[in-house]
Design a protein around this nucleic acid. Structure first.
Length: 568
RNA sequence: CGGGGUGUGGCUCAGCUUGGUAGAGCGCUCGGUUCGGGACCGAGAGGUCGGCGGUUCAAAUCCGCCCACCCCGACCA
């Protein structure tokens, strides 16, 4: 591939508005261009990276016996209506009508098509298990596309689906995917970990997310270095430490004019935030208004509360007033007609809380009083979000640390969620009809590329892991006008590909500085500089990762390259 | 969807407050000198100033509406 002909539009300046390193570098290195918000063109070098990732995924999926097929992006509405998601999903799905006026959807995912296929083609237990996958474009009308290629409205995903007779079979298919995913991410040179996913409201469904460390990531995970525990912060268990009881005024009302937030109250009383109870009024879809209680220094994990009361939203100011008879800021559990869900940190200790009358707080509130003051009942549960420094909930020894990550894949035990409503069943040995037990498994290809850049770059540019680099070797001809140099470079660029290397050849008639800068930006693992010593048959070999350079005789170049690439 | 911001040659931006001839750097074209870490000199090409409407003798600049893009939040099978 000759750079004089290759569409590799490198740019010196960061694109306007780009924040994520991977976004800046992908644009600067000439890998991608943005067409619209969350919609990108992959340029030749960027597409080569995607193809490499795709090939690795394909190999590993094939290895576990997953069969590749291809499902359409454009889909009829009726299968989505059958699964119930036509109404369940709102703005996020692109919808359109065909010329006859029939409703159509652009695929956000392919569970419906898979289940439709399974319902038609799977009849007997003898056909199970099945593992199917495809690598296909997905369309999602994201509320907020961002961070370059990380969150887009159109993206390519490998998604696979398992069909099993029972939960044991599903577990086996699930574990096959874990095996494949580890190999895929390892081969792509990523540092990642698997965390517990949101089990959702279906109860019992198990899922895991694969997270790659990256500051530009949108997800925060909590993990314990001691025992390997890891989970999304929203979900992570938060161990509690014994803390000395604070001096709280005895039970009674205290006038606190205009003091509403925890910060203000803490300042007013000269006590730390953990001396207070904070009360949030939420509107549960199942239960109506509910009061959630947390210690002042804790934050609510919406996922954890959702497990207790189902889907909910925060109450508006008016709703708080209506439900509790006092404005937000002075709401408390003593006394309340609302059902109360309290974080278990409040099981012990004495606290200050809102007094349910304007400009007053109640002191000396303890767990015992909650039961009496709340006729609608109190439930204790872990509601608080984990934070760095919390005791590890698994081993109880280590301290949680937090890190930002990019979700590069997930695996999900769907169970009967689609097979039952869509009638995907099989006959077992006894001739009885049973629903197929399903799983679904995704990997975002571009996110792997972005995560690799986030993890492997320096101030000059990208440092690709060899397996997904656009090329293995970047050959730079220092002086395009020098016949000796050019002849040697041309010779190498004929021989190296024949020896199995993927080569990009910078044959442009531009200054050496530009060539070196572009080579570092693009980030191919090996650079071969054909320069001054060309007449002696000597070139310079540089490792992009280490920056080490050495002069190598042309006849040794193949070996030297192999050695360098093996370590990249 | 709520809050904030930005739209000016291909790219990154200045000009707008205080209305009056549209600018810089990079890139591009041509000529010359350079030639191992984004060279230099000279000569050029290239812009409906996001769109529509309004105010005005006059609008990139002031006002209104719309659109696009970015950031924070909400949302995210």
């Amino acid at each position: 591939m000759r750079l004089s002909q290759l569409l590799l539009p490198t740019v010196k300046e960061d694109p306007a508005g780009a924040e994520a390193v991977s976004h800046k570098l992908m644009v600067r290195a000439g890998l991608v261009r943005q067409l619209a918000a969350g919609i990108y063109v992959f340029l030749p070098a960027g597409w080569r990276v995607m193809r490499k990732i795709e090939a690795i995924i394909r190999e590993e999926m094939d290895r576990i016996g997953c069969q590749e097929l291809l499902m359409p992006v454009l889909q009829p509405a009726d299968i989505w209506q059958e699964s119930g998601r036509w109404d369940e999903i709102q703005e996020e799905m692109f919808r359109l009508k065909d010329r006859k006026g029939a409703d159509m959807a652009l695929a956000m995912t392919h569970e419906e098509v898979i289940t439709w296929l399974a319902a038609r083609e799977i009849r007997s237990y003898k056909q199970l298990p099945q593992l199917w996958y495809h690598i296909q474009t997905k369309e999602r009308d994201e509320a907020r596309p961002k961070s370059g290629i990380l969150r887009t409205r159109e993206f390519i995903m490998k998604d696979s689906y398992s069909l099993d007779r029972d939960v044991d079979g599903l577990q086996a298919s699930y574990e096959k995917h874990m095996y494949a995913y580890d190999r895929i991410y390892d081969r792509c040179g990523l540092e990642y970990l698997m965390v517990d996913g949101d089990s959702g409201m279906m109860g019992g469904d198990i899922s895991h997310e694969y997270m790659a460390y990256a500051d530009a990531g949108e997800d925060e995970i909590a993990f314990c270095e001691g025992c390997g525990y890891a989970a999304n912060v929203q979900l992570a268990g938060a161990g509690l430490d014994e803390e000395p009881q604070l001096e709280i005024p005895p039970f009674g009302d205290i006038e606190t004019p205009g003091v509403r937030t925890i910060e203000e109250v803490a300042g007013f009383f000269g006590l730390p935030a953990r001396a207070f109870m904070k009360a949030l009024v939420v509107i549960s879809e199942d239960e109506g208004p509910v009061m959630a209680l947390l210690r002042g220094d804790h934050e609510l994990s919406e996922l954890k509360l959702r497990r207790v009361i189902g889907e909910f939203r925060l109450a508006t100011g008016d709703e708080v007033l209506e439900a509790q008879g006092v404005e937000a800021g002075f709401v408390g559990p003593i006394t309340t007609p609302l059902p109360v869900v309290a974080d278990e940190a409040l099981c012990s200790g004495v606290y200050l809380a809102g007094a349910n009358k304007p400009d007053h707080h109640k002191s000396g509130v303890s767990a015992e009083q909650l039961a009496e003051a709340t006729p609608a009942g109190v439930r204790f549960a872990e509601l608080r979000e984990a934070r760095a420094g919390d005791r590890c909930p698994q081993c109880g020894e280590g301290r949680l640390k937090s890190a930002r990550t990019i979700e590069i894949g997930n695996i999900f035990q769907l169970g009967l969620k689609y097979s039952v409503p869509m009638g995907a069943t099989y006959l077992d040995e006894a001739g009885e009809e049973r629903p197929i037990v399903m799983g679904s498994y995704g990997i975002g290809l571009a996110r792997i590329a972005a995560a690799a850049i986030e993890q492997h770059h320096d101030e000059r540019g990208i440092i690709w892991p060899r397996a997904i680099a656009p090329f293995d070797v970047h050959v730079a001809l220092v002086r395009a006008g020098d016949e000796t140099q050019r002849a040697l470079a041309e010779r190498l660029c004929g021989e190296l590909p024949a020896a199995g290397f993927e080569v990009v050849f910078d044959d442009r008639d531009v200054s050496a500085g530009i060539k070196f800068a572009d080579a570092d930006l693009l980030g191919c693992p090996a650079q071969v500089v054909v320069g001054k010593r060309a007449a002696e048959g000597v070139v310079e070999l540089k490792s992009r990762a280490t920056g080490c350079r050495e002069d190598v005789a042309v006849h040794d170049l193949g070996h030297a390259l192999r050695a360098l690439l093996a370590s990249a």
